[in-house]
């Protein structure tokens, strides 16, 4: 009898948990979309913030462009280094000790909170190197943040490449670099691009690292790497935090999550295409 009771409670627990999660997701998305859609318009997307206080009218074009640029710089910088590190660990590193050290450093870095990375960017890039609050400073800071994220995923993908095919390639007397470029990277490229785009979504949504390093309340579309930028998440924070305009905040949030979902969907599509080809 007690057994039945336990079993029922256990099932109830699982179902209730699942419902809570699904309802939360539904609520969050629904809340942003329903509220956002009321106040969004084409004009909002293609014009600059106006009004007094600034942002209470007008649009968010510079913030959209700013966020995209930040993402581009962050991903470009981080993926270049992350790809090299992953290749080194999987293909060139001979000692498992060095491999462990790399893993520990990357793992630790993944655990450094984004605000502390922001702190580093602010003091080192903005102040010490004199880059100022700029697109470049903020982009590089975000790059440091997403580096571990990209490295771990690329390394996993390279690690999963068929050992038998690798051995066959080396057995033909072919070099590692040739094997990498002709065999491994073409096969893993969807995964690599997916990892980078996913990191892009992560970078685009991050606020803490850019508060101090480059994001400002208002700036035109940046003309150079040294100009300060507007960014969607920071703009949303200012609109809410300063109580400037709730309506604009809803619309900004909608634009931000739409962009991030679009990026995530690209990433998922790439990963599943890889799976189909591979099978």
């Amino acid at each position: 009898m007690r057994k039945m009771e336990n079993s029922r409670l256990f099932k109830l627990w699982m179902v209730v948990s699942t419902l809570i999660v699904l309802i939360s997701v539904g609520f969050i998305i629904g809340y942003i979309v329903l509220n956002g859609i009321k106040s969004i318009s084409l004009d909002f997307i293609i014009s600059s913030p106006k009004g007094l206080p600034l942002g209470s009218e007008g649009g968010i074009l510079p913030a959209i462009v700013g966020s995209l640029l930040l993402m581009l710089i962050a991903c470009g910088f981080a993926s270049f280094l992350a790809l090299a590190t992953a290749i080194y660990v999987v293909f060139y590193c001979q000692s498992s000790q060095i491999e462990n050290i790399v893993h520990i450093i990357v793992q630790c870095m993944a655990g450094v909170p984004s605000i502390v990375i922001g702190l580093f960017g602010y003091t080192f890039l903005v102040a010490k190197l004199g880059l100022g609050r700029s697109l470049l400073s903020a982009g590089l800071t975000l790059g440091v943040m997403v580096f571990p994220f990209i490295e771990v995923r690329i390394e996993k993908s390279l690690q999963e490449f068929s050992t038998a095919a690798l051995q066959s390639s080396y057995a033909l007397g072919v070099s590692k670099a040739y094997t990498l470029f002709k065999l491994v990277l073409p096969q893993c490229k969807e995964d690599i691009v997916a990892a980078i785009t996913l990191a892009g979504g992560f970078a685009m949504g991050a606020t803490a690292p850019i508060i101090l390093t480059g994001a400002v309340i208002f700036a035109p579309i940046p003309s150079s790497l040294s100009s300060p930028v507007m960014a969607l998440p920071f703009h949303l924070y200012i609109l809410t935090g300063e109580g400037i305009s709730l309506e604009k905040a809803y619309a900004t949030a909608l634009v931000l999550i739409t962009l991030i979902f679009a990026i995530n969907i690209i990433s998922i599509a790439l990963t599943s295409r890889r799976k189909e080809v591979g099978s």
């Binding site: 068929s162 038998a164 095919a165 051995q167 066959s168 057995a171 033909l172 065999l183």
Partner: peptide, 16 residues
């Protein structure tokens, strides 16, 4: 490796 080729037990075609 070029002059002495090897074929492994398990077929291992490249994913190409």
């Amino acid at each position: 490796r070029r002059r002495i080729g090897i074929v492994f037990q398990k077929p291992s075609p490249f994913p190409l």
